[in-house]
Design a protein around this nucleic acid. Structure first.
Lengths: 188, 188
DNA sequence: TCCTACACGTGACTC
DNA sequence: TGAGTCACGTGTAGG
């Protein structure tokens, strides 16, 4: 009868508002308990924290470029360290870009991601970090330098929830995460 | 009459769902267009990005207070890496650690580095970034999840200058770079 | 047919 | 007396 629909509709509303409540609990600076305001505040907070992350990442990147190179470390470990730090060695980073990305479903919850990337030393870590930040289960990864500045990355991914993920969606996920991480796309 | 309330209620619903849509547009990894799933995903994303920010902040903070860098490295290499700072022990946030590291020389300028690491999602990127920051030429890398939270990383490295690098020195280079990047050592 | 998710109009409640 | 928000039950469209 209608009573079934009534129940399910009730529980649906309940779950929805409960989700909204738990969302509200995670967002600071909640001005109003108002339903819509929660969404607005959540959106604003998301945007702000997004900027913050980008800022931190940039700052950290800058610090990273001051990391001692191969010889410096070797010398330091030999005892004759001539550590001269502080001089602004600003490399033009962020040259890493994704040339191509392809996803393939191999079984219900398992995918293979193949991407060719261009960039100097560091491109592997950047790409891997971008993919790992999505929280998927990564069972195997290989990075193959096919020629100077060019790396072929193969990633085996297992999705947590079955059935929901498609090849295209996974590709989009990784792409947007990469862009968020500062990588660029090379669209042919 | 009721017609006024009707209109305002319509516009209210409209604004609400519009807010939901704009929230959805900001959240990646959208599994379903489903109304409630948007909230769930937004919540998950918020949580993940929150962790990421905290992690970055911690990392950056560590970089900032990096005056006794050589000491930290030396101590870690000696195995007596106890908590140096008397104040807060922020190390608990970083769970990624190197369980074992082994280097092998295969020819004059080529080495194989094998390391088993422990840590959640993100350990691969961290380790890889640490190694890549040394500026070596990395020809091939594989990351194999041997069991949950445990990754076996194999890296093929080519050194620029021949003759000056030893297995032990390379191991030290990578170890200290890893420590500098915030990873910890598990010394048996 | 059943089930799910949705938008709708309406009554109730608060400021 | 409104103007705003909310929860409710219902009709309906897609799977």
């Amino acid at each position: 009868m209608n009573s079934k629909n009534l129940f399910s509709e009730r529980s649906r509303r309940k779950r929805l508002s409960q989700q909204l409540i738990s969302l509200r609990s995670l967002v600071p600076n909640i001005t109003k308990m108002d339903k819509r305001s929660v969404l607005v505040d959540a959106l604003a907070y998301l945007k702000s924290i997004h900027e913050e992350t980008a800022r931190l990442q940039a700052e950290l990147e800058e610090k990273m470029t001051d990391a001692p190179q191969e010889e410096k470390v070797a010398e330091a470990l030999e005892g004759r360290r001539t550590v001269v730090k502080g001089s602004g060695n600003k490399k033009s980073r962020h040259k890493s870009q994704i040339l191509e990305i392809d996803t393939e479903k191999i079984e219900d919850r398992r995918f293979v991601v193949k991407m060719t990337c261009r960039g100097g030393s560091g491109v592997g870590g950047e790409v891997l970090r971008a993919v790992e930040s999505l929280g998927f289960d990564i069972t195997y990864t290989s990075l193959d330098q096919i020629k100077p500045q060019h790396v072929l990355i193969t990633i085996f991914v297992r999705i947590r929830k079955p059935g929901r993920m498609t090849e295209e969606k996974l590709k989009d996920c990784i792409t947007s995460s990469a862009i968020r991480s500062g990588l660029t796309l090379h669209n042919p």
